[in-house]
C-alpha cells in the first residue's frame, strides 16, 4: 500500500518531453536506420547465399551463422571499443579514429539485422516460382535486372509482414544500447529514474510504452497480412 501511495505520477509527466523528444526519437531513428540498412545488406547476403558461385554462398552462410551465435549486447559493447581501432587500421591514421556511440551502435545493429533479414529475404526469394526469373530472362533482362524488377519486389511483398515483425523485435532490442550509456528511450527513462530516485515509476512507464507501441505495431502487421492475403 505504501508503495502505491507514494507513487509519483508527476515525475513521468515532468520528464515526458525528454523521454519522447530525445529518448524515443533516438530509439525510432536507430530502429528505422538499422532496419533499412539491415534490409539492404540482408538482401545482398541472401543473393550471395543463393548465388551459383559456391564460394560466395559459403562466405555469406558463415557470416550469418557467426552473427547469430553471438549475444547482441556483447557485440554492441565490443564493437564500440573496437571500431575506432578498425577505422585506424583501415585509414592508416596515427591514432584510433573517433566513432560516436550512435554510429557504432548503428553499425552493430545493421550487421546483426542483415543476418536476420537475409534469412527472411532468402525464404522470400525461394518462394518465387522458377518461371518468373525464366520469363524475365526470356525477355532479355539480365540477372541483375531480373532480380531488381521481377524477383525482389515480389519477395519483399511476400515477406513484408515477417520483415515488419522482425523490425518490432529490433525496436525492442535497440534498448540494449543502454550499455553504452546512450539516452535512447530506456536510457532516458533510466537517467530520470536514477536522478529522481523514482525507479519503479520510470521503469514501469518505460515497460508500458514499449508494450503499447509493440502491440499496436503487431496489430498493424496482422491487418496488413490479411490484406496481402486477399490481394494474392
Amino acid at each position: 500500500m505504501t508503495m502505491i501511495g507514494s507513487f509519483d505520477f508527476d515525475v513521468i509527466r515532468r520528464s515526458l518531453p525528454y523521454l519522447f523528444l530525445e529518448g524515443m526519437r533516438f530509439t525510432l531513428t536507430l530502429t528505422a536506420l538499422a532496419a533499412f540498412g539491415g534490409l539492404v545488406f540482408g538482401t545482398l547476403i541472401a543473393l550471395m547465399r543463393l548465388s551459383s558461385y559456391k564460394v560466395l554462398g559459403r562466405i555469406a552462410g558463415f557470416y550469418v551463422d557467426f552473427i547469430r551465435s553471438l549475444p547482441l549486447v556483447l557485440v554492441i559493447f565490443w564493437f564500440y571499443f573496437l571500431v575506432p581501432y578498425i577505422g585506424q587500421w583501415l585509414t592508416g591514421a596515427s591514432r584510433p579514429i573517433t566513432v560516436g556511440a550512435f554510429a557504432s551502435s548503428l553499425i552493430t545493429f545493421i550487421a546483426f539485422e542483415a543476418a536476420y533479414f537475409s534469412e527472411i529475404m532468402r525464404a522470400g526469394i525461394q518462394s518465387i516460382s522458377k518461371g518468373q526469373p525464366a520469363a524475365a530472362s526470356a525477355l532479355g533482362l539480365t540477372y541483375a535486372q531480373s532480380m531488381r524488377y521481377v524477383v525482389l519486389p515480389q519477395a519483399f511483398r511476400n515477406m513484408l509482414p515477417v520483415l515488419l515483425t522482425q523490425t518490432i523485435v529490433l525496436f525492442q532490442d535497440t534498448s540494449l544500447v543502454y550499455v553504452l550509456s546512450i539516452p535512447d528511450f530506456l536510457g532516458a527513462a533510466s537517467k530520470v529514474a536514477q536522478r529522481d530516485g523514482r525507479l519503479v515509476e520510470m521503469y514501469l512507464f518505460a515497460a508500458l510504452v514499449y508494450f503499447v507501441i509493440s502491440c499496436v505495431a503487431s496489430y498493424g502487421v496482422r491487418r496488413l497480412q490479411a490484406r496481402i492475403a486477399i490481394v494474392r
Binding site: G131, Q132, S137, L139, G140, P153, Q154, R157
Partner: peptide
C-alpha cells in the same frame, strides 16, 4: 551475349508467367 540474344526471340510459357506485382 545471352540477354541480347533472348530479347530477339519471344517466348510464351505454359503457366503464362506474367509478373503479378
Amino acid at each position: 551475349d545471352l540477354p541480347k540474344l533472348r530479347s530477339r526471340v519471344g517466348m510464351v510459357f505454359q503457366h503464362f508467367e506474367l509478373f503479378p506485382h
